[in-house]
Computed example of a mutant assay.
Amino acid sequence: MSTKSKTRTTETNARELLVDLVSTPSPSGQEADAAALLVAFFEVHDREVYVDDAGNVRAPADDSVLLTSHIDTVPGNIPVEIRDGELWGRGSVDATGPLAAMATAAVETGVSFAGVVEEETTSSGARFLCEDRTEPDAVVNGEPSGWEGITLGYRGFLDGTYVATSESGHSSRPDMNAIEEAMDWWQKVENAFEADEWRPIFEQVTTKPVGFDGGLGADGLSVEATMEVQFRIPPALSADELRELADSKLVEGTVHWEKPIPPVMESPRTEVARAFRVAIRGAGGSPRLLRKTGTSDMNLYADTWDCPMVTYGPGNSDLDHAPDEHLPLDEFDTSVEILTDVARTLADG
């Protein structure tokens, strides 16, 4: 990796914040200790900061740009250590590295910051933020893109719970029971969204069963089946259209759908995207425009606020949630430089 070296007044503090945050477990729903570290970081730098009713860390300031990332991580204990210039530990990539870089750049430039909770589960922090504050002029959401990457698009997300019940009977009977009905429904859904090898995954629906429970009911008179399912939604399809198609495959049972997260695809021609291209080139890199097959809080921000936005952050997203999650510290330093340059460019108008 070719990076341009700079002396920064906050470089040591940035790395200290990063290591402290990665060393502090913060699985979804248990972010309070990590939030306290962020609050202390902003207080040391004489910034207004508070924890809101959702548990988000808010440091309001110049709303030319809102730098935001999530505090929570997925579960998993990876011993925290620095090895050959790389920080190992849960969250180092997703998304504590981007979070620490955002906090540092916000302190460096005086722009607004928000560290949000429960992105890995319900996105309750981002949902609350959208309802609780006015629209900023621009948003930079923190997720790993690699220091040269600028993420413009994410697929949407829809999850539901299929429930079916049938009368119990001898297993020799040919009638379908609730378990078979659940399996039959899911096979029809998968067939409806069969993968197309000629189209990018980003443009397709991905179907995934993530949980199943079935068997004889407690009363001994029924067979019950419950299946948790998830869908990733491309920008060309709405959650309502996907839900309608899945429901049309039902013969028995019902599906209880959760509130969807819509897909997002931002333009590469906004002032935010341009500022990142300039800053990345200034750091010796070659900007790459990305579309991610997953989902992020940017989907919610784009659905609520009519302002330009991108997602950016250090780290290899292939290591998200992985047992070998680690972040090169020189990449982290460079991402802080780039975020700082971008925030200054946007603040200067």
Results as ranks from 00 to 15, higher is better:
residue 304 T to Y: 10
residue 57 V to C: 04
residue 86 E to D: 10
residue 220 G to Q: 06
residue 254 T to D: 14
residue 334 T to G: 00
residue 108 E to C: 10
residue 318 D to P: 00
residue 336 V to L: 06
residue 69 S to M: 12
residue 263 P to N: 05
residue 331 E to L: 04
residue 283 A to F: 00
residue 117 V to E: 03
residue 259 K to M: 12
residue 257 W to I: 10
residue 148 E to D: 15
residue 171 S to P: 01
residue 137 D to A: 14
residue 208 K to T: 12
residue 177 N to F: 01
residue 32 A to V: 06
residue 3 T to M: 00
residue 317 S to C: 05
residue 326 H to K: 15
residue 269 R to P: 00
residue 328 P to T: 07
residue 191 N to M: 04
residue 17 L to W: 05
residue 9 T to Y: 04
residue 189 V to K: 05
residue 314 P to K: 02
residue 49 V to F: 07
residue 142 G to E: 07
residue 155 R to G: 07
residue 300 L to R: 05
residue 170 H to E: 05
residue 264 V to C: 06
residue 196 D to F: 13
residue 286 S to T: 15
residue 337 E to G: 05
residue 46 D to M: 08
residue 221 L to H: 07
residue 276 F to P: 02
residue 71 I to A: 03
residue 166 S to A: 03
residue 130 C to A: 14
residue 176 M to G: 01
residue 1 M to H: 14
residue 201 I to Q: 10
residue 327 L to W: 01
residue 127 R to P: 00
residue 233 I to T: 06
residue 199 R to H: 04
residue 125 G to L: 02
residue 28 S to P: 05
residue 107 V to Y: 08
residue 129 L to A: 08
residue 183 M to Q: 08
residue 107 V to C: 14
residue 327 L to R: 08
residue 118 E to T: 01
residue 323 P to C: 12
residue 218 A to S: 08
residue 318 D to E: 14
residue 261 I to G: 00
residue 345 T to F: 08
residue 197 E to D: 15
residue 180 E to K: 02
residue 320 D to L: 10
residue 106 A to N: 02
residue 63 D to E: 15
residue 239 A to G: 12
residue 123 S to G: 02
residue 125 G to K: 00
residue 38 L to Q: 03
residue 170 H to Q: 07
residue 55 G to M: 01
residue 101 A to F: 03
residue 44 V to M: 11
residue 29 G to C: 05
residue 191 N to A: 15
residue 23 S to H: 08
residue 148 E to T: 11
residue 90 R to L: 12
residue 152 L to E: 09
residue 44 V to P: 07
residue 166 S to C: 04
residue 306 D to N: 15
residue 289 L to T: 01
residue 242 L to M: 06
residue 183 M to C: 11
residue 75 P to I: 12
residue 226 T to N: 11
residue 4 K to E: 03
residue 284 G to W: 05
residue 114 A to R: 03
residue 321 H to C: 10
residue 247 D to T: 01
residue 78 I to T: 09
residue 298 M to H: 12
residue 85 G to V: 11
residue 57 V to Y: 01
residue 140 V to P: 04
residue 74 V to W: 03
residue 79 P to I: 08
residue 59 A to Q: 06
residue 204 Q to R: 14
